[in-house]
Nucleic acid binder design. Structure first.
Lengths: 355, 355
DNA sequence: CTGTTAGCGCGTTCAC
DNA sequence: GTGAACGCGCTAACAG
């Protein structure tokens, strides 16, 4: 032959029908052999079917199964920003746990836009996911909250299960995160180190997570007789650049007698440390810094960053577990939430005040 | 009423049939109004259908659509480790681009295990994804390569499209990454700064990406008359801990006259810097360090890390574009790959040799 | 342009 | 235990 081989033609995937024919059994038997609930099929047939399936390279069509069964094996995950270490760690947890249950996870990004989030929820409902995990951040006074609640309520009424990671005002299962308690503990620990005058680099005022952390921090200070004055608070976005920018503005305006800067999450803290350095100061020595989340990289920055550990991967796992749990066990959900409690990790970025 | 409200009963999701009935039109008309390709439906009917759909909170069942159409709107993405900044950035790119095309992305983790990867590919085929993006790392001499190729070939013959991010030995569309060229450029740039004696912190010997980067680096050195002796190479895993561990071992064994440590990716470099510090030395001053990838956090470590920029998000986008492209344009694929070219970014971790 | 009908691939009753 | 037949929600001819 002078011409090349005939190009391998595009074929349709093997269907269950093909397998049944190949094995010389009925569709029903083939189905039962490959998935069937109660294994009430002759061993010989069963083997023939399995062999045929292997020979044909058969893979069950998940969509078709979903349609026939009326249930999918999908879990939908919504995060604010996949590239953010906070969310990517959490996602890793969800994906890992999903794999154990042979569930498939689909992912989307809200980009911190609640209108976009609402739209995404609507779109993802088309997949008829078994569960939907909303890990994107909650806004206090979100104008889309009602619409989101309606959408999720409808979703749950049609058999789905929605779970929020971290508190929301919406009436759905929630994996509470110890943002408040963590902030409290951090404040107390820092006070114990001798720090007295703080400034906070906060996220947007309406961001629930930011709100809780700062509130907890203020409570913690109050509990030991200190305080966080309202003017000691710089707002910006909840990102690395937000942290950098807030710190830069703070330095330009003058940090006054501030001893320690509390950035509401680690990526902000890292940005803040860079801003401090760019201003010719040394983080830790000239100005202490603390973060929140304890993402992996804070061990590798200089000085190592004091933070509040959030077991992100475990949180992702727990969120899925909580979603999958049988109805009534709200209690057990609370119980297992001890797994996701926080812990203050003191490091070199808060060596204690110079004096 | 003394008893509470009747509990909202679990209902089945609204179906297209429901919408049609509500709007008083046929199934086909409803279908056409909501999805139909050419909009050849009476405006009045159309509006009635849309209203009915809205009233009923109808969302098309994607699984059913997939079954009926014979095509899904899913793209499957395989990465080694979601929590790794390299992969999470890449994933963000894929998800972003997918959203533009109204595609849904499902994600799974190979955990750098090729057997697991093979299994995952098989499982994901069940979704009948339109495209499959394999971004997990390739192993040279992978014993599962043949099986993977068979699986992917079967997948493509049934209408799917497989795309590899970074070169593999397998005959599928590939988005080439400039690992070799990047290594070369880095070597030349460092040599120009005055560095002459290097040690590399490499990943596993069989890891293709690591191999290419180190080979490129050696080539670059050779091109300017320098070299990387074979014994100047410490193996470990391709992770932060791998970098830390390799550096620790290197320090224990004695770094000799090494001026600069080239870690084959940024997370390794960050681990290495921590190890250097833990040994009482100062990265940059006592020992220069360079990484690869230019992940976001390298701007925030101290000293800022010299690296080779890989536009990870864009790479993710391009991978999807490449997968979605019409048949014959292998050429244009190459062309667009200029978008994903690398660039050396010199920073403080390589200030130039002391002498 | 509209409605009827036949599938898509699979699970599952129901008789045999 | 097995197979035939129906249904899942939807699209795509096919006639009107």
């Amino acid at each position: 032959m002078i011409e090349g081989d005939a190009p391998t033609r595009r074929t349709a995937p093997a269907t269950l029908h093909d397998v049944a024919r190949e094995a010389g059994v009925s569709l029903a038997t083939a189905s039962r052999s490959l998935n069937g609930s109660a294994r009430k099929v002759n061993e010989e047939y069963r083997e023939r079917v399995l062999a045929a399936a292997a020979k044909l390279g058969y893979t069950p069509n998940l969509s078709a199964q979903a349609v026939a069964r009326g249930t999918s094996t999908t879990v939908a995950l919504l995060v604010a920003d996949i590239a953010d270490p906070y969310f990517s760690s959490l996602a890793a947890g969800v994906v890992g746990a999903a794999g154990d249950d042979r569930l498939i996870v689909t992912m989307a990004e809200t980009k911190r836009d609640s209108a976009r989030e609402l739209e995404l929820v609507r779109a993802m409902r088309g997949q008829r996911p078994r569960v939907m995990i909303l890990a994107g951040s909650r806004d206090i006074g979100d104008p889309n909250a009602a619409a989101l609640e309606a959408e999720l309520t409808a979703y749950e009424q049609t058999g789905g299960r929605a779970v929020f990671v971290s508190e929301s005002d919406l009436p759905f299962r929630t994996l509470p995160l110890a943002n408040r308690a963590g902030g409290r503990d951090l404040a107390v620990a820092l006070h114990e180190l001798g720090y007295r005058r703080f400034t906070a680099l906060a996220g947007p005022e309406t961001l629930r997570t930011a709100h809780d952390r700062i509130a907890g921090f203020a409570e913690g200070l109050a509990s030991v007789g200190a305080q966080l004055p309202a003017d000691r608070l710089v707002r910006s976005s909840f990102t690395r650049d937000g942290g950098y920018d807030a710190m830069r503005r703070l330095l330009e305006a003058g940090i006054g007698d501030t001893q320690l800067v509390f950035a509401l999450n680690d990526v902000m803290a890292m940005g803040a440390m860079s801003a401090i350095r760019d201003a010719g100061l040394e983080p830790g020595r000239d100005l202490a810094v603390a973060g929140f989340d304890d993402i992996p990289t804070v061990r590798d920055v200089t000085p190592r960053l004091t933070s509040v550990r959030m077991p992100l991967e475990r949180i992702g796992e727990q969120a899925l577990r909580l979603a999958l749990e049988d109805g009534a066990d709200a209690a057990s959900a609370r119980a297992s939430s001890t797994d996701v409690s926080t812990e203050v990790v003191l490091r070199e970025s808060t060596p204690g005040p110079a004096a």
